[in-house]
Protein backbone atom coordinates (compact mmCIF):
# COMPACT_ATOMS: atom_id res chain seq x y z
CA UNK A 1 0.00 0.00 0.00
CA UNK A 2 2.99 2.30 0.28
CA UNK A 3 2.89 4.58 -2.73
CA UNK A 4 4.72 7.83 -3.17
CA UNK A 5 2.53 8.95 -6.02
CA UNK A 6 1.74 12.66 -5.74
CA UNK A 7 -2.07 12.97 -5.42
CA UNK A 8 -1.89 16.23 -7.38
CA UNK A 9 -0.78 14.28 -10.44
CA UNK A 10 -3.88 12.09 -10.28
CA UNK A 11 -6.12 15.13 -10.63
CA UNK A 12 -4.01 16.47 -13.47
CA UNK A 13 -4.26 13.08 -15.13
CA UNK A 14 -8.06 13.24 -14.97
CA UNK A 15 -8.07 16.82 -16.20
CA UNK A 16 -6.01 15.73 -19.17
CA UNK A 17 -3.22 18.06 -18.18
CA UNK A 18 -0.32 15.59 -18.18
CA UNK A 19 2.05 15.09 -21.07
CA UNK A 20 1.34 11.94 -23.04
CA UNK A 21 4.36 10.13 -21.61
CA UNK A 22 3.50 11.08 -18.02
CA UNK A 23 -0.08 10.03 -18.55
CA UNK A 24 0.96 6.66 -19.93
CA UNK A 25 3.29 6.05 -16.99
CA UNK A 26 0.62 6.99 -14.49
CA UNK A 27 -1.97 4.80 -16.18
CA UNK A 28 0.36 1.87 -15.81
CA UNK A 29 1.00 2.70 -12.16
CA UNK A 30 -2.70 2.96 -11.35
CA UNK A 31 -3.24 -0.47 -12.88
CA UNK A 32 -0.94 -1.98 -10.28
CA UNK A 33 -1.60 0.25 -7.25
CA UNK A 34 -4.84 -0.30 -5.30
CA UNK A 35 -4.35 2.93 -3.36
CA UNK A 36 -4.14 5.08 -6.50
CA UNK A 37 -6.95 3.11 -8.13
CA UNK A 38 -9.25 3.94 -5.21
CA UNK A 39 -8.09 7.53 -5.26
CA UNK A 40 -8.82 7.86 -8.96
CA UNK A 41 -12.24 6.30 -8.55
CA UNK A 42 -13.17 8.90 -5.96
CA UNK A 43 -11.86 11.75 -8.06
CA UNK A 44 -13.93 10.47 -10.95
CA UNK A 45 -17.02 10.50 -8.76
CA UNK A 46 -16.39 14.11 -7.81
CA UNK A 47 -15.88 15.03 -11.43
CA UNK A 48 -19.05 13.19 -12.34
CA UNK A 49 -20.88 15.10 -9.63
CA UNK A 50 -20.17 18.29 -11.55
CA UNK A 51 -21.92 16.91 -14.60
CA UNK A 52 -25.00 16.55 -12.44
CA UNK A 53 -25.06 20.08 -11.04
CA UNK A 54 -27.72 21.03 -13.54
CA UNK A 55 -27.86 23.59 -16.31
CA UNK A 56 -25.63 26.60 -16.32
CA UNK A 57 -26.97 29.89 -14.99
CA UNK A 58 -28.16 32.02 -17.87
CA UNK A 59 -28.39 35.80 -17.93
CA UNK A 60 -31.76 37.32 -18.76
CA UNK A 61 -32.20 38.98 -22.18
CA UNK A 62 -33.02 42.28 -20.44
CA UNK A 63 -29.76 42.17 -18.54
CA UNK A 64 -27.80 41.41 -21.69
CA UNK A 65 -29.41 44.40 -23.42
CA UNK A 66 -28.60 46.60 -20.48
CA UNK A 67 -24.92 45.73 -20.59
CA UNK A 68 -24.81 45.96 -24.37
CA UNK A 69 -26.23 49.43 -24.17
CA UNK A 70 -23.75 50.32 -21.50
CA UNK A 71 -20.73 49.32 -23.56
CA UNK A 72 -21.88 50.03 -27.10
CA UNK A 73 -19.67 52.31 -29.09
CA UNK A 74 -21.91 55.02 -30.52
CA UNK A 75 -19.48 56.27 -33.16
CA UNK A 76 -19.45 52.93 -34.96
CA UNK A 77 -21.50 54.07 -37.93
CA UNK A 78 -21.50 57.76 -38.23
CA UNK A 79 -21.00 59.52 -34.97
CA UNK A 80 -17.83 61.39 -35.53
CA UNK A 81 -18.02 62.56 -31.98
CA UNK A 82 -17.18 59.73 -29.63
CA UNK A 83 -20.03 60.14 -27.22
CA UNK A 84 -19.69 58.03 -24.14
CA UNK A 85 -23.14 56.76 -23.18
CA UNK A 86 -22.39 57.23 -19.49
CA UNK A 87 -21.63 60.87 -20.09
CA UNK A 88 -24.79 61.23 -22.12
CA UNK A 89 -26.84 59.69 -19.37
CA UNK A 90 -25.18 61.87 -16.78
CA UNK A 91 -26.05 64.85 -18.92
CA UNK A 92 -29.63 63.61 -19.16
CA UNK A 93 -29.87 63.25 -15.42
CA UNK A 94 -28.56 66.77 -15.03
CA UNK A 95 -31.06 67.96 -17.60
CA UNK A 96 -33.92 66.27 -15.81
CA UNK A 97 -32.92 68.04 -12.63
CA UNK A 98 -32.74 71.37 -14.40
CA UNK A 99 -35.89 70.75 -16.36
CA UNK A 100 -37.72 69.81 -13.19
CA UNK A 101 -36.79 73.12 -11.70
CA UNK A 102 -37.78 75.09 -14.77
CA UNK A 103 -40.95 73.34 -15.79
CA UNK A 104 -42.50 72.26 -12.59
CA UNK A 105 -45.96 71.89 -14.07
CA UNK A 106 -45.06 68.91 -16.27
CA UNK A 107 -41.43 68.06 -15.69
CA UNK A 108 -41.84 64.47 -16.82
CA UNK A 109 -42.94 65.37 -20.32
CA UNK A 110 -39.94 67.58 -20.79
CA UNK A 111 -37.64 64.88 -19.44
CA UNK A 112 -39.22 62.37 -21.79
CA UNK A 113 -38.37 64.54 -24.77
CA UNK A 114 -34.79 64.76 -23.52
CA UNK A 115 -34.81 60.98 -23.04
CA UNK A 116 -35.86 60.44 -26.64
CA UNK A 117 -32.85 62.45 -27.74
CA UNK A 118 -30.44 60.78 -25.32
CA UNK A 119 -31.71 57.30 -26.12
CA UNK A 120 -31.04 57.82 -29.78
CA UNK A 121 -27.48 58.95 -29.13
CA UNK A 122 -26.81 56.08 -26.75
CA UNK A 123 -28.34 53.47 -29.01
CA UNK A 124 -26.24 51.15 -31.11
CA UNK A 125 -28.64 51.83 -33.97
CA UNK A 126 -29.61 55.47 -33.51
CA UNK A 127 -31.63 55.68 -36.70
CA UNK A 128 -33.80 53.23 -38.60
CA UNK A 129 -33.28 54.91 -41.92
CA UNK A 130 -29.74 56.02 -42.63
CA UNK A 131 -29.72 58.72 -45.22
CA UNK A 132 -28.42 62.20 -45.82
CA UNK A 133 -31.01 62.68 -48.56
CA UNK A 134 -34.28 64.31 -47.56
CA UNK A 135 -35.94 62.71 -50.60
CA UNK A 136 -35.22 59.30 -49.06
CA UNK A 137 -36.14 60.17 -45.51
CA UNK A 138 -39.51 61.80 -46.11
CA UNK A 139 -41.10 58.90 -48.03
CA UNK A 140 -39.63 56.44 -45.54
CA UNK A 141 -41.92 57.85 -42.86
CA UNK A 142 -45.02 57.46 -45.01
CA UNK A 143 -47.17 54.68 -43.64
CA UNK A 144 -45.09 54.56 -40.49
CA UNK A 145 -46.52 57.69 -38.90
CA UNK A 146 -50.02 59.15 -39.33
CA UNK A 147 -48.88 62.55 -40.64
CA UNK A 148 -46.33 64.01 -43.01
CA UNK A 149 -43.89 66.89 -42.85
CA UNK A 150 -41.22 68.41 -45.03
CA UNK A 151 -37.53 67.82 -44.47
CA UNK A 152 -35.57 70.98 -45.32
CA UNK A 153 -32.73 70.99 -47.84
CA UNK A 154 -29.44 70.92 -45.94
CA UNK A 155 -27.08 71.07 -48.92
CA UNK A 156 -24.82 74.08 -48.55
CA UNK A 157 -25.65 74.58 -44.87
CA UNK A 158 -23.70 73.69 -41.76
CA UNK A 159 -26.19 70.90 -41.05
CA UNK A 160 -26.02 67.28 -42.16
CA UNK A 161 -28.99 64.95 -42.04
CA UNK A 162 -27.96 61.58 -40.59
CA UNK A 163 -31.27 59.73 -40.71
CA UNK A 164 -34.51 59.18 -38.92
CA UNK A 165 -36.57 56.80 -36.86
CA UNK A 166 -40.05 56.33 -35.52
CA UNK A 167 -40.48 57.11 -31.83
CA UNK A 168 -43.36 57.07 -29.40
CA UNK A 169 -44.47 59.71 -26.96
CA UNK A 170 -47.47 58.89 -24.79
CA UNK A 171 -48.18 55.94 -27.10
CA UNK A 172 -48.34 58.28 -30.08
CA UNK A 173 -46.00 57.64 -32.99
CA UNK A 174 -43.79 60.47 -34.10
CA UNK A 175 -40.72 61.17 -36.20
CA UNK A 176 -37.21 61.72 -34.98
CA UNK A 177 -34.58 63.14 -37.30
CA UNK A 178 -30.95 63.28 -36.29
CA UNK A 179 -29.04 66.21 -37.67
CA UNK A 180 -25.33 66.85 -37.18
CA UNK A 181 -23.75 70.24 -36.87
CA UNK A 182 -19.98 70.09 -36.50
CA UNK A 183 -19.36 67.84 -33.49
CA UNK A 184 -22.92 67.95 -32.21
CA UNK A 185 -26.02 65.86 -32.80
CA UNK A 186 -29.41 67.46 -32.70
CA UNK A 187 -32.75 65.68 -32.59
CA UNK A 188 -35.78 67.07 -34.37
CA UNK A 189 -38.89 65.45 -32.91
CA UNK A 190 -42.26 65.81 -34.55
CA UNK A 191 -45.65 64.72 -33.16
CA UNK A 192 -49.26 65.40 -33.93
CA UNK A 193 -50.29 68.36 -31.80
CA UNK A 194 -53.01 67.86 -29.24
CA UNK A 195 -54.37 69.66 -26.21
CA UNK A 196 -52.26 67.48 -23.96
CA UNK A 197 -48.99 68.29 -25.71
CA UNK A 198 -49.86 71.98 -25.88
CA UNK A 199 -50.49 72.16 -22.18
CA UNK A 200 -47.27 70.33 -21.41
CA UNK A 201 -45.06 72.45 -23.55
CA UNK A 202 -46.63 75.86 -23.42
CA UNK A 203 -43.45 77.54 -22.33
CA UNK A 204 -42.36 80.77 -23.99
CA UNK A 205 -41.18 80.81 -27.58
CA UNK A 206 -37.49 80.92 -28.32
CA UNK A 207 -34.59 78.68 -27.56
CA UNK A 208 -34.21 77.77 -23.94
CA UNK A 209 -30.69 76.99 -22.80
CA UNK A 210 -30.11 74.69 -19.85
CA UNK A 211 -26.43 73.89 -19.36
CA UNK A 212 -26.21 70.75 -21.44
CA UNK A 213 -29.13 70.86 -23.85
CA UNK A 214 -30.80 73.59 -25.75
CA UNK A 215 -34.39 73.08 -26.73
CA UNK A 216 -36.80 74.86 -28.99
CA UNK A 217 -40.42 73.92 -29.52
CA UNK A 218 -43.31 75.27 -31.57
CA UNK A 219 -46.52 74.22 -33.18
CA UNK A 220 -47.43 74.53 -36.83
CA UNK A 221 -50.14 73.00 -39.06
CA UNK A 222 -51.28 70.63 -36.34
CA UNK A 223 -47.79 69.38 -35.61
CA UNK A 224 -45.65 69.92 -32.53
CA UNK A 225 -41.91 70.27 -33.19
CA UNK A 226 -39.02 69.92 -30.78
CA UNK A 227 -35.39 70.67 -31.60
CA UNK A 228 -33.04 69.51 -28.87
CA UNK A 229 -29.31 69.00 -28.59
CA UNK A 230 -26.08 70.05 -26.95
CA UNK A 231 -25.14 72.38 -29.82
CA UNK A 232 -25.07 76.07 -29.01
CA UNK A 233 -28.48 77.79 -28.91
CA UNK A 234 -27.85 79.72 -32.11
CA UNK A 235 -27.42 76.44 -34.03
CA UNK A 236 -30.61 75.07 -32.47
CA UNK A 237 -32.37 78.28 -33.43
CA UNK A 238 -31.06 78.12 -37.01
CA UNK A 239 -32.17 74.53 -37.41
CA UNK A 240 -35.60 75.45 -36.05
CA UNK A 241 -35.81 78.22 -38.62
CA UNK A 242 -35.08 75.86 -41.51
CA UNK A 243 -37.82 73.49 -40.33
CA UNK A 244 -40.26 76.35 -39.85
CA UNK A 245 -39.47 77.56 -43.39
CA UNK A 246 -39.98 74.10 -44.86
CA UNK A 247 -43.26 73.63 -42.96
CA UNK A 248 -44.97 77.03 -43.07
Amino acid sequence: MDCDQNPVALGAYLDDELHASEAAALREHIGGCPKCATEIAELVRIKRGFRAVGPRFAPSPEFRRRVEQQISYPSRRFWRLQLIPAAVFAAAVLLVVIASALFLHRPNDFAEIADLHVNALASANPVDVVSTDRHTVKPWFQGRIPFSFNVPEFAGTEFTLLGGRVIYFHQRPGAQLIVAVRQHKISVLIFQAGPELDRSFAFPEGVGHHNTFSIDTWQSQGLRYFVIGDADPSAIGKLSTTFKAANP
Binding site: F57, A58, P59, V67, I71, S75
Partner: peptide, 30 residues
Protein backbone atom coordinates in the same frame (compact mmCIF):
# COMPACT_ATOMS: atom_id res chain seq x y z
CA UNK B 1 -12.42 50.39 -27.43
CA UNK B 2 -14.36 50.38 -30.66
CA UNK B 3 -13.86 46.62 -30.80
CA UNK B 4 -14.70 45.95 -27.18
CA UNK B 5 -18.36 45.08 -27.62
CA UNK B 6 -17.68 42.64 -30.45
CA UNK B 7 -14.83 41.00 -28.56
CA UNK B 8 -16.32 40.89 -25.09
CA UNK B 9 -20.03 40.16 -25.61
CA UNK B 10 -19.47 36.55 -26.75
CA UNK B 11 -18.12 35.90 -23.24
CA UNK B 12 -21.26 37.26 -21.62
CA UNK B 13 -23.00 33.95 -20.88
CA UNK B 14 -19.90 32.31 -19.45
CA UNK B 15 -19.01 35.27 -17.28
CA UNK B 16 -22.56 35.45 -15.99
CA UNK B 17 -22.58 31.77 -15.13
CA UNK B 18 -19.33 32.12 -13.21
CA UNK B 19 -20.59 35.25 -11.46
CA UNK B 20 -23.78 33.45 -10.43
CA UNK B 21 -21.79 30.58 -9.03
CA UNK B 22 -19.58 32.97 -7.09
CA UNK B 23 -22.32 35.20 -5.71
CA UNK B 24 -25.07 32.63 -5.38
CA UNK B 25 -27.86 34.87 -6.67
CA UNK B 26 -29.03 36.69 -9.76
CA UNK B 27 -28.98 40.23 -8.52
CA UNK B 28 -25.40 40.13 -7.19
CA UNK B 29 -24.30 38.22 -10.28
CA UNK B 30 -25.73 40.95 -12.51
Amino acid sequence: PEFFEAAAMPLFDQLYNFAHWLTGNRSDAE
